[in-house]
């Protein structure tokens, strides 16, 4: 059962250990979509995952909580590329640059 609804703002493309997120990440359905794709990548034995936010200027705490769980509990290496300056600043303010190895470009 989908309890989140299907009203997502984003589109994602996955290629091996790389996930690209297009559009503005905004709501819980966006979180659900990103989580579904990353869980799939982990089940395909990818231990280093690169997440590229192509446009988004912010992310939700549910995504941050999920990525923290993946990093800390599942021991997956996450590398976030935040192409938007505001998104990079948000990660910086939240003190997450090191843990998610956040960079501004690929």
């Amino acid at each position: 059962m989908n309890i989140f609804g299907k009203d997502t703002n984003i589109e994602v493309s996955v290629s091996n250990n790389l996930i690209r997120i297009y559009g503005q990440v905004q709501n819980i359905a966006d979180y659900a979509l990103i989580r579904e794709k990353i869980v799939e990548m982990i089940s395909n034995n990818f231990r280093d995952i690169k997440i590229v936010f192509e446009e988004s200027n912010a992310v939700t705490s549910s995504i941050i909580g999920f990525l923290l769980k993946v990093t800390q509990k599942d021991k997956i290496n996450i590398h976030v590329v935040a192409k938007n300056e505001d998104l990079y600043l948000l990660f910086e303010i939240l003190g997450l640059i090191d843990i998610f190895k956040v960079t501004k470009s690929e």
Partner: peptide, 29 residues
């Protein structure tokens, strides 16, 4: 589901407005 639907509709409307477009995603988050 209803919260998600509300945010989607609300922010789509903000996004269609020139004045609010710039902050629509931040409002959404």
């Amino acid at each position: 589901k209803d919260i998600n639907r509300f945010i989607k509709i609300f922010c789509d409307r903000l996004n269609r407005s020139k004045r609010f477009k710039n902050i629509s995603n931040k409002v959404g988050v």
